[in-house]
Amino acid sequence: MARIINNPLGDLSGKAGSVVFKKTKYGTYISSLPNVNSQKSSTLQKKQQSKMKTVMHFLTPLQWILKNTYFPLQQNSPTFNHIKSYYLRHALTSNGEGYHITYSQCLLSYGDLRIPEQVELQREESQVHLTWQPQVEQAMAKADDQLFVVVYQPDLHQFYFVEQLAERQAGQATFAIPEVWSPTAEFHGWVGYYRPQEQQASLSVYLGEL
């Protein structure tokens, strides 16, 4: 805000373009109008920053896992940029005050191998037993595709990666929840096939809360 002294134009009051003149007993003052577009941009920026913060918090511990399981079909940008873009567009839900990860929309692997199908699980304390239909006679499926599991414990924000748990053709496998995690805690799981030496993988399948 500025004060006009010895104004040769006489009394000034009101709005003119992007400025406002206000006459008071102390003189005439001039100030700029609020930039509505700037305010909107600031709100949008805060929204994007909140989204990015939520996504990066979830993805940062996953970077090593995703390096081995996530293989975009088109390498026109760095792989992690591809991952962040997917999560920002598809794996966030607004809770009114911010954003949280939608676990069912998360991808823990990416590629063109055939996905795990008809996966079922049974959990007994810390042991989780999986069964699935191998579908080895179907396209993009090889009998020796390796099944992996990722388990997430939200309270601790920790991930457990079970590498090469079994071959596709096995149709069943068992793994154990880490002993350092409380058996009554909340867990979320995903499975997928991959061939790490060949940099191939399937889309992951969300198992739900274990």
Rank of each mutant, 00 (worst) to 15 (best):
A2I: 12
A2W: 15
A2C: 09
G10T: 04
G17F: 01
V19Y: 06
F21I: 11
K22R: 12
K22W: 00
G27W: 05
S31G: 09
L33W: 00
V36L: 11
S38P: 00
T43V: 14
K47V: 08
S50C: 02
K51H: 03
M52A: 14
T54Q: 07
T54H: 03
V55W: 04
H57L: 07
H57S: 09
T60A: 07
L62T: 03
W64G: 01
W64F: 11
K67A: 14
N68T: 14
Y70I: 09
S77R: 15
F80C: 00
N81W: 06
K84T: 15
S85A: 10
Y86M: 01
Y86V: 05
H90R: 08
S94C: 07
S94T: 12
G96T: 03
E97I: 13
Y99V: 01
T102Y: 10
Q105C: 12
L107P: 05
L108E: 13
S109I: 13
D112G: 08
I115H: 06
Q118N: 12
V119N: 03
Q122P: 00
Q122I: 09
E124P: 00
E125C: 08
S126A: 10
V128I: 03
W132H: 02
Q133F: 02
Q133V: 06
Q135R: 08
E137N: 06
A143Q: 04
A143E: 04
D145S: 05
L147S: 02
F148W: 13
V150E: 03
V151K: 01
V151C: 11
Q153T: 03
Q158I: 09
F161C: 07
V162P: 00
A170W: 07
A170K: 14
G171A: 05
T174W: 10
T174C: 08
E179F: 14
W181D: 06
H188T: 03
Y194C: 15
R195S: 14
S204H: 04
G208N: 06
